[in-house]
Amino acid sequence: MADLSAFPITKRWPAANPDVIQLYSFPTPNGVKVSIALEELGLDYEPHKVTLADEDVKSDAFLSLNPNNKIPAIIDPNGPDGAPVGLFESGAILIYLAEKTGKLMGQTATDNAHTIQWLMFQMGGVGPMFGQLGFFAKFAGAEIEDPRPRERYINEAKRLLAVMEKQMEGKDWITGEFSIADIAIVPWLNGLDFYGVKDTLGWDDHPNVVAWHKRFYARPAVEKGKNIPARD
């Protein structure tokens, strides 16, 4: 049985089975990237619900694994150097899991490079920009009378959707083959409905993106992973 005692987080969220990957997360667009990837890869794991409340993500226990106080994070008891390894940042975790299994990164070094390219597109563009749009459309920023912040992120979200619409022409998946890049991006597209901005962004004017979104959520592993850990 693996010894995870070096990770203080396991005292607050104990591992029932320390021999499998421990997932500390919540079903947000960033969080479900990892649960979906774990399901798609067929890896055994144990989910622990870490809410977005300060009492969880800013607790000493969680900060001991992720000093940036954001979900998700993992501990892999079977790390690459023969010892458990802890990781945070969803994109880094996706790359780690894909490299661990040799899956969801494409067949060649060129495929690998293109997959990471589109993963970074999500990490550097889609996630931050859609997240800011959500803040100004649904949350506290919606109360700001000055329209310029909201317009900035609406325009940038439209631009990013146009990039994806063009890239998805004639493709089922963003690199041509299902990969961690799709797993990274599409949950953020789902977030647009939660933010109530699909009509504002002209969602239906992007048929390639709409079809991609539907195709993604029709996958059994995605259907299972999209609500892990369960909110309730």
Rank of each mutant, 00 (worst) to 15 (best):
E89L: 08
K198G: 09
M164L: 15
E99S: 04
P128Y: 04
I185K: 10
K224P: 03
P72D: 11
W212R: 10
E145N: 12
F62I: 07
L160C: 09
K226V: 12
N227E: 14
N112L: 13
N155P: 00
E40I: 00
Y96F: 12
F136I: 01
K166V: 14
F139W: 11
T101A: 07
N30L: 09
S5H: 13
P128L: 01
W212P: 12
E151R: 11
Q107I: 00
G82I: 08
L104S: 06
A142L: 03
K11F: 00
L189N: 13
T108L: 12
A181D: 11
E169R: 07
E145F: 03
I21T: 03
T51V: 01
D56L: 06
P27W: 02
G225Q: 06
N227F: 04
D60W: 02
S179K: 07
A83P: 00
P229Q: 03
L160A: 10
K226H: 11
F194K: 08
L4Y: 10
H206S: 09
L160Q: 11
T115Q: 08
E55V: 00
W203S: 09
D19Q: 02
V85I: 15
N17P: 03
K158Y: 12
D205P: 02
R219D: 07
L119A: 08
T200G: 02
W212L: 12
P80E: 06
A162R: 13
D182Q: 03
Q107G: 11
D172V: 05
A113M: 14
M129A: 00
L104D: 01
P67C: 08
R148L: 11
K226M: 15
L201I: 05
G86M: 07
G202Q: 12
K33T: 03
F121T: 12
G42L: 03
L119T: 10
A6T: 12
F88R: 04
V210K: 14
K58A: 01
G134D: 04
F135D: 01
E223D: 08
